[in-house]
């Protein structure tokens, strides 16, 4: 794994107990398993805790503006289709300020794999509510309990046209790694939500205990896609459905645009 890390920039900026490292480890193991050429991988991120991952990764790495990673990645991918493009971001970055880019990247089925580290809070700015903060939970900007309802991001991107959608948690590391590998292999827009603990800004304020306690919570509240199928909505209310949620084969944006280029050339020659 070390060959994928820029160890000269360690130690990293993440807090003790943070889930980002676990998700990053799963991503790097998945890349290693696929045996991809290190020089042909670009990782793009926005702004936030998880977005700082790009600095530590020994690929071509692009740390962009808040929420815009997918828009930068779209230009990069179109201009250099042979690159494997991966976007890493948090729930605030991808679902709030970057929500529009998320649904449109999914709609285009552009061949980008997006890993959303969902810690349910804005960690970098010390604990404001995000679009993934559950209703009633506390945040610095939701001191009386969050009134907003959270997104189900997986359902959102599936509805928008993503061709691979999965969810796991930082407790289920092996599964997370397997799902990321599947997502990377899917040609089209792939989305993996990694539910991750932020013991410092989310856990502490909501009295969820230590990082280990939060991992145990994921262990106890995760249900597989198969198990969830036979459960009632009220039984699923506080559960995290994990596994591959959606996978279809559809032409990706690049293949479609290649046809446009062919047609444009044909008409120009006429």
């Amino acid at each position: 794994m070390k060959r994928y890390l820029r160890q000269q920039y360690m130690p990293h900026i993440w807090c003790p107990g943070c889930g980002n490292g676990i998700v990053l480890g799963a991503l790097l193991r998945a890349i290693s398993r696929l045996g991809w050429d290190q020089d042909r991988i670009a990782v793009v991120s926005g702004i936030g805790c998880s977005s700082r991952a790009t600095g530590y990764l020994d690929f071509d790495t692009l740390h962009t503006t808040h929420g815009r990673a997918l828009a930068f990645a779209t230009g990069l991918k179109l201009a250099r289709p042979e690159l494997k493009v991966i976007v890493v971001g948090g729930d605030g970055d991808l679902a709030a300020i970057g929500g529009n880019h998320l649904i449109h990247a999914a709609r285009r089925n552009i061949d980008i794999t997006t890993i959303c580290v969902n810690n349910r809070i804005y960690g970098m700015t010390s604990g404001q509510a995000s679009p993934l903060t559950p209703k009633g939970r506390l945040a610095t900007t939701a001191p009386y309990g969050n009134v907003d309802r959270p997104f189900d991001l997986c359902q959102l991107v599936q509805a928008a046209g993503a061709t691979y959608v999965a969810r796991s948690t930082t407790y289920h590391v092996r599964q997370l790694c397997n799902l990321i590998a599947e997502a990377l292999e899917n040609r089209g827009f792939s989305f993996v939500e990694a539910v991750a603990q932020c013991p410092v800004y989310y856990g502490r304020r909501n009295r969820l205990g230590t990082a280990v306690d939060m991992l145990k919570y994921y262990r106890d509240h995760a249900v597989t896609v198969r198990a969830a199928q036979s459960m009632q909505p009220e039984q699923l209310a506080d559960k995290i459905i994990i596994g591959r949620l959606h996978h279809v084969v559809e032409p990706d944006y690049e293949s479609e645009y290649a046809r446009v280029m062919e047609e444009a050339r044909r008409r120009a020659d006429r």
Binding site: V44, L62, T64, T65, R68, A71, F72, A73, T74, G75, L76, K77, L78, A79, R80, L83, N100, H101, H104, Y257
Partner: peptide, 23 residues
């Protein structure tokens, strides 16, 4: 390559991303 992006912010971002790919 031409792409109509979802908004003005995205078109600026995609332009920068493409340039970084050497185009």
């Amino acid at each position: 390559k031409f792409i109509q992006m979802e908004d003005e912010i995205a078109s600026m971002a995609a332009t920068i991303g493409a340039s970084l790919a050497g185009v």
